[in-house]
Design a protein around this nucleic acid. Structure first.
Lengths: 171, 171
DNA sequence: AGGCAATATGATATAACATATCATTCGGGA
DNA sequence: TCCCGAATGATATGTTATATCATATTGCCT
């Protein structure tokens, strides 16, 4: 069933409201975490984190500058964005994807358990990113094999290019 | 036993000669391969490939510009280096390491068997790179698990940061 | 050999990503 | 309230990469 234009608008608005509320909740959670760690999640930092959460995808530093300008009417210098991203990374609230030079909000901010190092599947078509945790057995054999070649890994963060389900189907 | 200065010099020269000869052999092999594929490995392209092989590590495009200038007395514009790197990648003679924005000669140019997609272990201290091939079983379970999350990988090229054996020992 | 088409390279400009450094402002405790 | 340290702003510059048009080289066909 194809929805009418009218119903699309309504459901998009609803959807948007739900997202905004979710983002707020996550940001507040992050703020508490920061307080616990003796650091501050300032307004600017909240804006950047919220922007990443809201966009739902990986953004470059300069894309974040644009996002803040357009969505929040706030001009944040690129230098500040980089500093803030650095801070958010130090708090594990954001991860950098070196494969595409973009930044993404951690998918596990509100998880209470200590979360493992993640693997990232990056869709090279729509740029959406899925943060997954491979099974321990896979990680373990990977680490073991790398260790056997006389290399030490600090962490099994992996970034892998591919096509997500929906882009794959469109081929 | 600590070698004398004199013997060090001699062995370094010897070592260097052996390396140079090896590089030549690999470049010639690459040239034959290219001919077979109906493309040309021009002088400039040979220089870039040889520079990568000779350095034994991953280099950025601009580092290659410097290398050619210093070692070969030849000034190649950065634009050309990028184009040549693109060509070499298309021929699988060079791989790009997105994690560090550098380029490395393929470790298997002279192998006759059709070679698999590789994994790269990148030492974040000395920048040396080890190109390995994980066991099929590991790759297979990795691919399977990614597939289960509704993602398609085009290739299991992995880039992993860590410390190589010798840098690890120095810690 | 001569000329044509395709390929390769040069030159120049500019975009995209990132850091260094010094100045200014903000926030919270004595 | 004043002071200190943390955060942000402003400016400059470094690094990585691509776009585009001009020139040169190569291989091929006649």
């Amino acid at each position: 069933m194809v929805p009418t234009h009218q119903s699309q608008v309504i459901s998009l608005n609803l959807f948007e409201k739900i997202i905004v509320r979710k983002v707020q909740a996550i940001v507040e959670h992050a703020e508490q975490q920061c307080k616990k760690n003796g650091v501050r999640l300032t307004e600017k930092r909240k804006h950047i984190l919220a922007a990443l959460l809201h966009s739902g995808k990986a953004l470059s530093a300069y894309e974040l500058v644009g996002y803040c300008k357009e969505q929040l009417g706030e001009t944040i210098p690129a230098m500040s964005v980089y500093r803030i991203l650095g801070f958010l990374q130090s708090q594990q609230l954001v991860h950098k994807l070196d494969l595409v030079n973009k930044y993404i909000a951690c998918a596990h901010i509100t998880c209470h358990h200590k979360h493992a190092v993640s693997q990232f599947l990056i869709c090279k078509q729509c740029q959406r990113v899925k943060e997954i945790n491979l099974r321990d057995s896979v990680i373990h054999s990977l680490l073991q094999e790398v260790y056997d070649t006389d290399f030490e890994l600090d962490s099994p963060q992996l970034e892998i290019n591919g096509l997500c389900g929906s882009c794959g189907k469109m081929k």
